[in-house]
Design a protein around this nucleic acid. Sequence first.
DNA 1: TCTGGGGTCCTAGGACCC
DNA 2: TCTGGGGTCCTAGGACCC
Length: 396
Amino acid sequence: MSKIIMHADLNAFFATAEELRHPELSSYPLAVGGSGPRSVISTASYLAREKGVHSAMPVAEARRICPSLILLPVDFPYYEMLSRSFFAYLKRFSPHIEEASIDEGYVDLTGRVKGDPYAFFSSIQQGLLKQIGLKCSLGIAPTKFLAKMASDYKKPLGITIIRKRDIAQMLYPLPIESFYGVGKKSAARLRLFGINTIGDFALALKNDKEEVKETLGKFFYTANEWIAGEGSDLIDESPFDPKSIGHSETFPYDTDDYLEIRKHLLSLSRSVAEGAKAKKKKGRTVSLLVRDTHFNNHSKSVSFSEPTDSFEFIYERVSDLFDHNFLGMTVRLLGVTLQNLVDPRKETVQMSFWNFEEYEKMDQTKLLVHELNRKLEKGNLTLLSELKKKGGGNES
DNA sequence: TCTGGGGTCCTAGGACCC
DNA sequence: TCTGGGGTCCTAGGACCC
């Protein structure tokens, strides 16, 4: 039996969030974004979109084409608070929810649609607007991919149902870049093969076109299932568990000033370490991203056996990486990321073999313990006796 | 007009181990 | 003497999404 998956997508979320607390501004074109010389628009209200303002557009250009634009700074904590209300609201209709991002989620409504479907979905949409003040587009379909495509079909305040038998009629005429997962680069390449619409794409997938397979890699097979209506309908209800924690910053002007660069590495490292501590994560890899004057990215990373959330350690690692690889370079952006994250609370499972507090005091032994832990994880339990021989091992 | 910042996932080569 | 193949980890880069 096919499921009923609903994709709910908040319309112009950040901009709407600002209009909610500044109702007097809602009759003006409004956008949320940075204020620096190199900032871009994060979200534009629909009034601003009518003037041509859109996401990722440089603020300078937005101001040029829409001089009356009201630009507000991004207030992430506020949007997160509203986002929590949004998901709490959705949970009233089903406990099976996947939070896909801050402003969109999948809901498994199988067996929960009461009465006339359109009236039912409309009441979900209207309830959100009346109770929280947020506008959303709803897409309803048997798979997550189709539901996502459906919610994109009409904005704002759209309600679109795509059944399997509607795929050709509804999706095939759409331009290739509206296919979720096909971005600018892939779209340009596909157009070279004469693939301009989702319909062209579907045909190429079905015919196993070799050049398309080469262009898309693994995604070829995923896309083939998606467009046939055989994509995943599984809701991932697990809470957000980050796989990396990073911060990056674009300089207002490109610089080769070493002290300036060091200062930024310091503050980025501090932010990353604080982020890791807040999320109770430690990482085994630190990476440095440098964007040069020509907008080319260069990354260098280093891994180590003991996970860290130490600001000093992260700062030393990225400083070394910079000194050894990019000394003298003029940079546009610097980024610091902690990856290979482990949850320190889970890390301590093996520690229960020993009295860990004792080891914390002894640096040398601490390193040994961690090295052994890593080996023990791989199943070589005989190492336990090795540790005892070297002394300091307390069974508990 | 000159292009943010937070992420995820994929690819591909090389090292290393068995 | 010449030469396997699988698995995992590390590293760099790139596409994509919100």
